[in-house]
Design a binder for these strands. Structure first.
Lengths: 219, 219
DNA sequence: GGCAGATTGTGAAAAACTTAACGACTATCT
DNA sequence: AGATAGTCGTTAAGTTTTTCACAATCTGCC
């Protein structure tokens, strides 16, 4: 099973949470079935790509019919490990961190932000989006052995220092929102999301890759 | 020139702002020269990829020496259109929007957030990170003919409605932070950044693609 | 001036990803 | 029942991106 999992392309893996959300939506709307074409319009991914993505998990649909929403949903729930909740910590309760705390609380099922950490005494002891805010000094104690991943929304100057402490405390993944490119041991996974770069990249594309009619969007 | 520009792979284009930032850092630190290997360690991109990326713009470096930081910087400044500022609007001054306003003000040189819009009367009339907050009713008037791109940080229920108004008002690109996948005419470019999906994707990778020693990171 | 060592730029290959196309099958209409 | 329209799963082709590997060539030093 784990070996099979490894055959799934990373590009596909990145789209799974997107699919999952939209299938969830469809289910809430009481929709019974959905075709790759319909789904394609909703998530803005080519229908052939969707069929290909789904096929990595076996035959989820029926020819001439489409996909049963109920079945698809239960399948994704299982695949994305909805049952087993991954515990996450958030470091840095600024605007971005706060946004995430509110956001997360409402939407995610397979991850839970257990604690948030900040150095600001005014914030410590409060609760945001249902998540208790702890002092950064408590980081090691709270994280050790319990937390799998961390969301890094601290000022960039603090990024590497906090990262080292997180790694020490045993997290295996970091979602880094700071502009700093952090250095970690090989077995730690880091995903970078850089708001400033995203905006600059969009602008660059606007100037140099004007969309012609009929041209498709990538992301 | 424009035809030449079109040869640059999109993957490369997305890395340019990243390179630019780090070259800027090096320059501030007074560094004279840098090799692709050094830069690779800083930005976490394979050195061969960096050399290939740079080579699309011609021979920027010198064999046996590396790249001259000063020259590289001036080249990137020109290429990323630092001189010609792209005007941007931000819609939705919640936590995420506020984070962006602070962030942007400090860092970007080729883009400027001219206005922010919100429907909350308490926010309208204030200024955040140097950006004036206008009422959402003024959107069309302020944007029309002047603003090239928009950052969408509104609640997802409002996303499509605001999008339509932005398109009407002539923006050509949208950076969409809402979970909704918005529909736009073909000539409008949309980049989606979905915080919730990023977290779920990271968790999925942690579970199914554990990093072995020596394995490289993507993104 | 010449040589050892470093580093680029790039051809070629590999890897990763997307898309087109179609056979096989379903559902529905007449 | 047969015809029609729709849909999946997949093979094969196409495209994009990354990586390897090395000749060319520059630097720095003696």
């Amino acid at each position: 099973m784990d070996i099979e999992q490894h055959k799934i392309p990373q590009a596909t893996a990145k789209r799974l949470p997107l699919y999952y959300r939209f299938i969830n939506n469809l289910h809430s709307q009481g929709k019974q079935r959905v075709s790759s074409k319909e789904l394609s319009e909703a998530v803005k991914v080519d229908s052939a790509t969707i069929r290909r993505d789904f096929s990595y998990f076996g035959a989820l649909g029926k020819k001439g019919y489409g996909y049963n929403v109920e079945y698809l949903l239960s399948f994704f729930r299982k695949t994305l490990d909805q049952d087993e909740i991954t515990k996450v910590a958030l470091i840095g309760v600024g605007n971005l961190g706060t946004a995430f705390l509110h956001y997360n609380f409402m939407k995610n099922n397979n991850t839970k932000i257990e604690y948030a950490f900040d150095s600001n005494a005014d914030k410590v002891g409060t609760e945001i989006g249902g998540v208790p805010v702890k002092h950064i000094d408590e980081l090691e104690d709270m994280v050790k052995g319990d937390i799998t991943a961390a969301i890094l929304t601290v000022p960039s100057a603090a990024a590497q220092g906090i990262t080292d402490r997180l790694v020490q405390s045993g997290v295996s993944g970091i979602l880094n929102f700071t502009p700093a490119r952090i250095t970690v041991p090989e077995h730690i996974r880091v995903h970078h999301i850089d708001l400033s770069i995203e905006l600059q990249a969009l602008v660059y594309f606007l100037k140099h890759y004007p969309l012609e009619a009929g041209e498709e969007q990538e992301e």
